[in-house]
């Protein structure tokens, strides 16, 4: 194979998952992520893996629960409405402390919405999505290369912290084609002594379960889980800064919105406007530090999003509302243009 290949974002996720050692994929087709399933359907049988098109998204996420219990790297993927269906299963994964990867290639909503790109599942993914006190590690790729890299990262982090990791992409990221290098290191899964792999009559049964009827014990489990979340916050927060050193205006954007924003920033810089970008790569944990720091030298944040303003709340929290945070957005499957973002920058500079 050549050094680089030309891939759709969805294909990059599938190939990276296989590279990361995932041999079990359960899914159900939905635009704009169907290429993940199509790729797995082609490739898994050839490498001794399992591709299964489940009868529904709910069935698929419960199959993920099963394989995760057995300690193997496993994934499912869908798009917004399908992720809502998986919500119950994701909560059960959290309750049973199971590592798994869930991919959401978002489309416009709510409801069935449309098939064009969106970032309107930010709240759903960063706040949990299903019921109960829990978090997922949420990774937001901004290129096809990152679709691959963050898929691998997702599996590694899921295993490291016994959590569900989500790759939160959008329809653009899933559908666009870019050259990708698949030459990356993969950390193999750790030992999983808790997994239900059979006792061989040598140890006690392992039980994987999210039911806990004694409130004192359930409280302890929740507290222990949040202590683990603190470690994730401390160790795994990722972000990119672009032209932030002398910035007087800072854009906050992830995924496709960050790419559009970079174009706008380059144009604004030509006009002498000092503007930069903070791009969260982990949406949970949210990178508070760069925003807190930027709040000491910028006069305004602009949150560029493909939704009605969701990440903007985290930008306000992280910057402790020290400077104004405004919204530049499109919704319903529309993408802000570089010109629209540039206009917002010019307005903020005056």
């Amino acid at each position: 194979m050549a050094d680089k290949v030309l891939m759709k974002g969805n294909e990059a996720i599938a190939e990276a998952a296989i590279k990361a050692g995932c041999r079990h994929y359960f899914g159900y087709p939905i635009t704009p992520q169907t290429e993940v399933a199509a790729y797995m359907a082609k490739k898994m049988p050839k490498i001794g893996g399992t591709f299964l098109q489940a009868e529904s998204e709910i069935a698929a996420i419960n199959m993920v629960y099963g394989v995760a219990s057995a300690g193997l790297r496993v994934m499912t993927s869908s798009s917004s409405p399908g992720i809502s269906l998986k919500g119950e299963g994701i909560s059960y994964l959290a309750g049973a402390d199971l590592p798994a990867l869930v991919v959401n290639v978002q489309r416009g909503g709510p409801g069935l919405g449309g098939i064009q790109p969106s970032q309107s599942d930010y709240f759903q993914s960063t706040r949990g999505g299903g019921h109960g006190d829990y978090h997922m590690i949420v990774l937001a790729p901004s290129s096809v290369q990152e679709m691959a890299a963050l898929t691998v990262k997702g599996f590694e982090l899921a295993d490291k912290y016994r959590m569900t990791a989500m790759v939160l992409a959008d329809g653009t990221m899933g559908q666009m084609m870019e050259p990708v290098s698949l030459d990356f290191e993969v950390t193999p899964p750790p030992e999983k002594p808790w997994a239900t792999t059979g006792t061989e009559m040598k140890r006690k049964h392992n039980i994987v379960n999210s039911l806990s009827l004694v409130p004192e014990e359930l409280e302890k489990l929740n507290i222990a889980r949040f202590e683990r979340y603190e470690l994730v916050k401390k160790n795994e927060t990722m972000y990119e800064e672009y032209m932030m050193d002398d910035a007087e205006i800072a854009i906050a954007a992830f995924g496709i919105a960050a790419r559009v924003s970079k174009n706008a920033i380059n144009e604004a810089r030509k006009q002498g406007i000092k503007v930069g970008l903070i791009r969260p790569i982990t949406l949970w944990p949210f990178p508070d530090a760069p925003f807190k720091k930027a709040a000491t030298h910028v006069k305004q944040f602009i949150s560029v999003e493909l939704n009605m303003g969701q990440m903007i709340e985290d930008v306000r929290l992280a910057s402790e509302c020290k400077v104004p945070v405004t919204l530049c957005n499109r919704v319903g499957g529309m993408i802000p243009s570089p010109e629209q973002v540039l206009d917002a920058i010019i307005k903020a500079s005056k």
Binding site: M1, V5, L6, M7, Y39, K43, P179
Partner: peptide, 10 residues
């Protein structure tokens, strides 16, 4: 044909 597509590399 495109040699650089991942499922038709050879």
């Amino acid at each position: 044909i495109n040699m650089y597509r991942p499922l038709t590399p050879d």
